[in-house]
C-alpha cells in the first residue's frame, strides 16, 4: 500500500468493517430488491412479448439479465439521496471534517466506497444467484466481466461524487431535502433503473446520454452482460471516467467556494 493513499484505504476498510453491524439492514435491502426484481421482470417481460419478442434490442434473455443485474447493483451504486454530509453541514459537525488534515470529498469517498463494496456481499451476489436460478442471467465472456467489474467500481465512485455534489449544496441551502429528492428521481430514472435507457424515446435517450446518470447503472449492466462489448465497452468505461472527472471537479469547486461562506451552525 503506497503510503500516500494509506489514510483513505484505512477509512475504506474501517467503513467496510462497520457495515457488518448493519447486516440486518442489508438483508432488508436484499428482500426489497428481490421483490421489485420480480415486479420489474413481470412488467418488462410482458413488454417484450407484446412487442413481438424484441424491443429496443432486448429479447427475453437479455431483459432478464438487465432486470437482475440492475437490482443486484442497487446496494453498491447508490442512486438515492442520502444526507450524511448535508446533515453534518446542518448540525455543524462538518467543522470536525474541516479540522482534519484530509480532503473532505475524497475522505467521504473512501467511507462511501467501504459501504458500496460491502454491499456486494449481502446484496449483489445473492441477487445474481437468485436471478440466475429463476429467469436467468447472461454474462459477457471473462474479459468483458472483468471490464464490467471495473465499470461497477467506477459507477460506485461516480454515484458518490454525484450525491456529494448535491449534499455539499447544504453549505448554501439550510434544507437540502427538496434538491435531494429531485436528484433521486432524476438519477434513478435516467440511470435506467426502471426502464433500460435503450427503451427510452429518442429525445429522452439523447437527454439521458448527455448526463452522467446512464454511467451509473446502464453502463455496468451492459458491459457485465455483454450487451455492449469490445471497443464500445471500452469507450463506455472511458465515458464513466470522463464523468468522474467532471462531477468530481464540480464537487471540489463547490467545497472550496462553500468553505469560504460556511457558517458553522450551533456553538
Amino acid at each position: 500500500m503506497p503510503s500516500a493513499i494509506r489514510p483513505w484505504f484505512r477509512l475504506l476498510r474501517a467503513s467496510f468493517a462497520a457495515q457488518t453491524r448493519y447486516l440486518p439492514a442489508a438483508l432488508g435491502g436484499l428482500i426489497a430488491n428481490l421483490t421489485f426484481g420480480f415486479l420489474k421482470a413481470a412488467v418488462l417481460f410482458a413488454t417484450v412479448r407484446a412487442a413481438g419478442g424484441e424491443v429496443g434490442g432486448y429479447d427475453l434473455a437479455t431483459m432478464s439479465s438487465y432486470v437482475w443485474l440492475s437490482q443486484a447493483l442497487l446496494g453498491t451504486v447508490n442512486l438515492g439521496a442520502d444526507s450524511d454530509l448535508a446533515d453534518r453541514v446542518r448540525t455543524g459537525d462538518i467543522a470536525i471534517d474541516f479540522a482534519r488534515p484530509l480532503d473532505v470529498q475524497t475522505s467521504y469517498l473512501a467511507v462511501d466506497l467501504g459501504r458500496s463494496f460491502f454491499a456486494l456481499g449481502p446484496r449483489a451476489i445473492p441477487l445474481i444467484l437468485l436471478g440466475a436460478l429463476t429467469t436467468g442471467i447472461a454474462f459477457a465472456p471473462p474479459a468483458g466481466v472483468l471490464l464490467g467489474l471495473v465499470a461497477v467500481a467506477l459507477a460506485a465512485v461516480l454515484s458518490f461524487l454525484g450525491r456529494y455534489a448535491v449534499n455539499i449544496l447544504g453549505l448554501w441551502l439550510v434544507e437540502t431535502r427538496g434538491v435531494r429528492t429531485l436528484y433521486m428521481l432524476v438519477s434513478s430514472f435516467l440511470a435506467g433503473l426502471f426502464v433500460p435507457v435503450p427503451l427510452f424515446p429518442d429525445w429522452l435517450k439523447m437527454l439521458a446520454n448527455a448526463t452522467p446518470f446512464p454511467s451509473l447503472l446502464q453502463t455496468p449492466i451492459d458491459v457485465l452482460s455483454g450487451k455492449v462489448s469490445g471497443a464500445a465497452a471500452l469507450l463506455a468505461v472511458l465515458w464513466q471516467v470522463f464523468w468522474i472527472v467532471v462531477v468530481g471537479a464540480a464537487g471540489q469547486l463547490l467545497t472550496r467556494r462553500g468553505r469560504l461562506k460556511l457558517e458553522v451552525q450551533g456553538g
Binding site: 474501517a14 462497520a18 453491524r21 459537525d93 467543522a95 470536525i96 479540522a99 482534519r100 456553538g267
Partner: peptide
C-alpha cells in the same frame, strides 16, 4: 488538536 465538547471526532460505530 481541537476538541469541540459538543461534537465528536471519533467514529461512532467503531
Amino acid at each position: 488538536g481541537v476538541v469541540f465538547g459538543q461534537r465528536s471526532q471519533l467514529w461512532w460505530d467503531l
